[in-house]
Amino acid sequence: MKYYISILLLCFVCYGAKEPSAFEKQSGATKRDLSSLQGTAQNLLNLTTQIQEQQEALKQSQEGLMSLYESQHQKLQNTTKQSATNTQEIENLKTEIAALKTLLQQQKEQIHTLDSKMKEIHTLTIKTQESILQELEKLSNPHSNNANKGTQKQDDTQSQKPTSKPKFDKNKSAELFTQAKEFIKKKQYKSAKDIMLWLKDNNYNAPEATFYLGEIAYLQKDYHLAIKYYKASVALSDRGAYMPTLLLHTALCFKGIKDMPNYNSFLEVLIATYPQSKEAAQAKELRK
């Protein structure tokens, strides 16, 4: 509106400059007033130009602010979206952590259950080992006196025979032990027995040496003597790898002397103590 007023005033000024009026010709005061009015019009024109420049500057500033606003608004939207994504990720992580916590708790319970089972197995193993010794001690019971008498007679007969014990080099005990086992495989029982007796007397691997003495007697079908050596071996140690074989052969020795209660009892002990062994599988077949 101000812009149009300024143009109109300018037109009047320009017209007045071309066509001086009668008042201008007659009065100098009127000319001065007209000059003053022209100056005022020029000032208004200058002011209008300044306002236009300020308006243009304001428009440019407004455009800049609008661009900045849109940029910041876009950033805000992006941040909001990222925040929503992060919130979802956090929720997912919370869910995974809860699942892991549940899994850990389940594993703890399983470990506790396994610990309990291990304790039960340990207790059962100790009881079984004790039952092995008890079963072997039954040989001294009255129902097996006849068998003991037979064994005693054999021992008395052997003790009456003068025997000279062979001597071996203690520094070669390991080699002798291996050699004696080879003698057993070759059925050279006399040579094997001499070495095993010497090793047992010299406390070299005495539990296993005693076990092999029982094996020699078992292979020679001297079941009473075999049981005696098996019993002595278990008394020295019940943790050898040969224990499943010892229990199986002890059972078979009792079968050989017609002692079926002890035969069945040792089969049960073998299956309960060493269920995964091949001897336990044989015992299951024999039990059938």
Rank of each mutant, 00 (worst) to 15 (best):
T40D: 08
A41F: 03
N43S: 14
L45E: 06
L45A: 15
L45M: 12
L45N: 08
N46H: 07
L47N: 03
L47H: 04
T49Y: 03
Q50N: 07
I51H: 08
I51R: 08
I51K: 09
Q52R: 02
E53W: 00
E53F: 01
E53H: 01
Q54K: 11
Q55K: 11
A57V: 09
A57H: 12
Q60T: 08
S61R: 12
Q62C: 03
L65I: 13
M66W: 03
M66R: 13
M66S: 14
M66V: 04
M66K: 14
S67L: 15
S67A: 15
L68S: 14
Y69R: 05
E70Q: 15
S71A: 07
Q72N: 12
Q72L: 14
Q72R: 13
Q72S: 09
H73Q: 09
H73G: 00
H73C: 03
H73I: 00
H73P: 00
Q74V: 01
K75P: 00
L76Y: 10
L76A: 11
Q77P: 00
Q77C: 04
Q77D: 11
N78I: 02
T80Q: 08
T80F: 01
A84D: 10
A84C: 02
N86P: 00
Q88A: 05
I90W: 06
I90K: 11
N92E: 13
N92T: 13
L93K: 10
K94V: 10
K94M: 09
K94F: 06
E96A: 11
I97Q: 12
A98H: 05
Q105Y: 06
Q106E: 10
Q106F: 01
Q107R: 12
K108D: 14
K108V: 09
K108S: 14
E109A: 12
Q110E: 15
Q110T: 15
H112Y: 04
H112M: 07
H112L: 08
H112S: 13
T113P: 02
L114E: 03
L114G: 00
S116K: 09
M118Y: 05
M118N: 10
